[in-house]
Simulated assay, not measured.
Amino acid sequence: MPTLDPGQLAIREMQEDEEQMILELLKDGFKDTENRLILYVLTRPLALLLLAVVSSGLRFLLNSFVAALLGPVLLCLLALKLLLRRSPDLGGLWAYYRSGRRGLWVAVYDGDDVCGCVALEPRLQGVPRTAELRRLAVSRWYRRSGVGRRLLAFLEAQARAQGYERVVLYTAVVAKAAVSLFESSGYRPTGGRSWLGYIILQEFSKEL
């Protein structure tokens, strides 16, 4: 974990020539979360039981024990990857493609080292006026150094300046560092998305 000089860390709008760099940063963060979340889902007791039942059934139809064992697992992996990438709450990389560069800020250290990004998106319905935190990502080399906390505080300030009264966000339950950051910054769990009865995406909110 690098030791940062807070005075050397600035946050500004993303520049056009930084787009590919930010895209790679988002891709890295999404793949890391995606893989850990899939492992978490597949190792839940109910998921293991269902995979065992399906594998046992396939053994009567297939001559290969390996195919009967690995087939259901591979199909589940493919289905979960497709599901997560279509999720509006977790697929930050794909949301970035759809919305372009609007409302996206980057954290820059020592003048030119881009080390993180964050975006703010309005929720068109609901009272109080609510904004959603999207695409908060920090480069591997700068994690646990305060960059994420600075980006979060910056986004909240932007939301207040634009008249929003609340910020909501979704994060995977396996993203322990992110969950700890949000909880220590005053965010409280307000719901989530579940699979087979297990929460996989936790919703947090904070009144501004």
Score class of each variant (00 low, 15 high):
Leu196Met: 15
Glu203Trp: 04
Asp5Met: 01
Met1Ser: 13
Leu75Cys: 03
Pro88Met: 06
Gly71Lys: 02
Tyr97Glu: 13
Leu61Ala: 15
Ser56Pro: 04
Gln15Glu: 11
Leu70Cys: 13
Tyr109Ala: 01
Ala47Arg: 03
Gly116Glu: 01
Leu51Val: 14
Leu133Glu: 01
Val174Pro: 05
Leu83Val: 11
Ala157Met: 13
Glu132Asn: 12
Gly163Ile: 14
Tyr97Pro: 02
Asp110Trp: 01
Ser56Leu: 13
Gly186Arg: 07
Ala172His: 00
Glu34Ile: 06
Val174Asp: 06
Gly197Leu: 11
Val173Trp: 10
Leu61Arg: 10
Ile38Asp: 02
Cys115Ile: 04
Leu25Ala: 02
Ala178Arg: 00
Ser55Ile: 09
Val179Arg: 14
Leu26Phe: 03
Leu77Val: 02
Gly116Leu: 07
Ala10Trp: 02
Leu93Ser: 00
Ala52Gly: 12
Gly103Thr: 07
Val108Asn: 04
Arg166Lys: 15
Lys206Arg: 15
Asp32Gln: 12
Ile11Ser: 05
Ile38His: 03
Glu121Thr: 05
Leu74Asn: 09
Gly191Ala: 13
Ala68Ile: 08
Gly111Ser: 07
Glu183Ala: 11
Tyr198Val: 12
Glu121Asn: 08
Ala161Gln: 15
Leu120His: 00
Arg36Trp: 04
Ser180Val: 06
Ala119Arg: 01
Arg36Asp: 11
Leu196His: 09
Trp141Leu: 11
Met21Asn: 05
Leu77Met: 11
Gly57Arg: 10
Glu13His: 04
Gly71Met: 13
Arg193Glu: 14
Ala177Met: 08
Cys115Leu: 02
Arg143Asp: 07
Leu169Phe: 10
Leu42Pro: 04
Val41Pro: 00
Ile11Gln: 06
Ala178Phe: 05
Ser64Leu: 05
Phe182Gly: 00
Ile22Leu: 08
Arg59Phe: 10
Val108Trp: 01
Gln8Ala: 14
Ala67Gln: 12
Val167Glu: 00
Gly197Trp: 09
Leu181Ala: 08
Leu77Gln: 14
Leu69Ala: 14
Ser194Pro: 06
Asp112Val: 05
Gly91Glu: 09
Ile200Gly: 06
Ala107Pro: 01
Ser139Asp: 02
Asn63Met: 04
Val138Trp: 05
Ala52Trp: 09
Val127Asn: 07
Leu4Asn: 03
Tyr97Gln: 13
Tyr142Trp: 10
Leu93Asn: 00
Leu196Ala: 13
Leu208Gln: 00
Leu90Met: 15
Leu93Ile: 02
Thr171Pro: 08
Arg12Ile: 07
Glu207Thr: 15
Ala68Thr: 11
Val73Pro: 03
Ser139Arg: 00
Leu84Asp: 02
Ala131Met: 07
Glu165Arg: 15
Phe30Trp: 12
Leu50Trp: 10
Gly191His: 12
Gly163Tyr: 14
Arg135Ile: 05
Ala95Phe: 06
Ser55Asp: 11
Leu136His: 03
Thr33Lys: 07
